[in-house]
Nucleic acid binder design. Structure first.
Lengths: 148, 148
DNA sequence: TTGATTGCAAATCCTTTGCAGGGAA
DNA sequence: TTCCCTGCAAAGGATTTGCAATCAA
């Protein structure tokens, strides 16, 4: 149920704000809602456009600041792709999914790699790390582009 | 032998330049050499500083342009970390090594994950991709930072 | 000669910051 | 009052681009 996920996230957000001494302002709640309404990746500017369409005059600065809070809270995940602005995605969407990216046309595919759980456990033990998340990107040429 | 690797890279570079109708200018060859002399990661600006120390007045623009060529040629690999400039590393250095990064203090550790070879083969088959490379970053808190 | 290459400075793009005004407790 | 939040505009950092001069084939 996406409602359940979203409710959990909302609670998590409230709890995080409280814990951090931050206020649940209208701007923050709106940005949270719009972020939860996204599908797939988005960047700060996408949210600005959406909010503008909704008639809100939220500033870029506030969006950046709030997205950072949402990332800190573990509600959003930050993704860093070459040559692009920082991307966000809902952390609750899938436990994790990785990206297969065509170097030529930029096509992106998501895949799931079950092996990562073991790896994380191994790393945690070997380096004494408390692992929170990871990002894996595999690059290459897609079927179309490889054929040229 | 690192000489062998470097020789191979030099040939690869020459071949790539020729194939692309680019000239093996002094600037390009120098940047190539300095890039090959690096250990670990570096960014465009690091190279600028090094070249300056060597008494060269190579411009930032040329460095960026040449690093891009080297990446295209498969001699350097680009790495994209959150909140940092694009990092480069020699592609021939190691078949691959991944990164474990502390969210708090930024400490970075490299590790090798043998499982990735299988994954690449699987992905290639399933998506009909010609895989060239990948980047894996695992985030968390290092022993020091987790203890606070 | 001719087209590629370079350095320089200006321009971009994304993101962060300083600050004054506004708002909630 | 007091402190947090916000928007705005300016600042910042990384990277790219336009252009005239220079260089190599």
């Amino acid at each position: 149920m996406s409602e359940t996920n979203q409710d959990k996230a909302r609670e998590k957000f409230s709890a995080f704000l409280q814990k951090s001494g931050l206020k649940p302002t209208a701007e923050r709640l709106t940005i949270f809602s719009e972020a939860m309404a996204t599908v797939g990746h988005f960047e700060a500017d996408d949210l600005l456009v959406i909010l503008k369409q909704r008639g809100r005059k939220t500033s870029r600065a506030t969006i950046y600041r709030t997205l950072e809070i949402l990332a800190q809270a573990g509600i959003l995940r930050k993704l860093c792709f070459e040559g692009a602005a920082i991307q966000f995605e809902k952390a609750a969407d899938t436990p994790h999914h990785d990206h297969l990216i065509c170097r030529k046309c930029g096509a992106r595919f998501e895949f799931y790699h079950s092996e990562m759980e073991n790896l994380q456990a191994d790393l945690a033990k070997e380096y004494n790390f408390r692992i929170t998340d990871y990002t894996l990107q595999v690059y290459g040429l897609c079927a179309n582009c490889a054929g040229e």
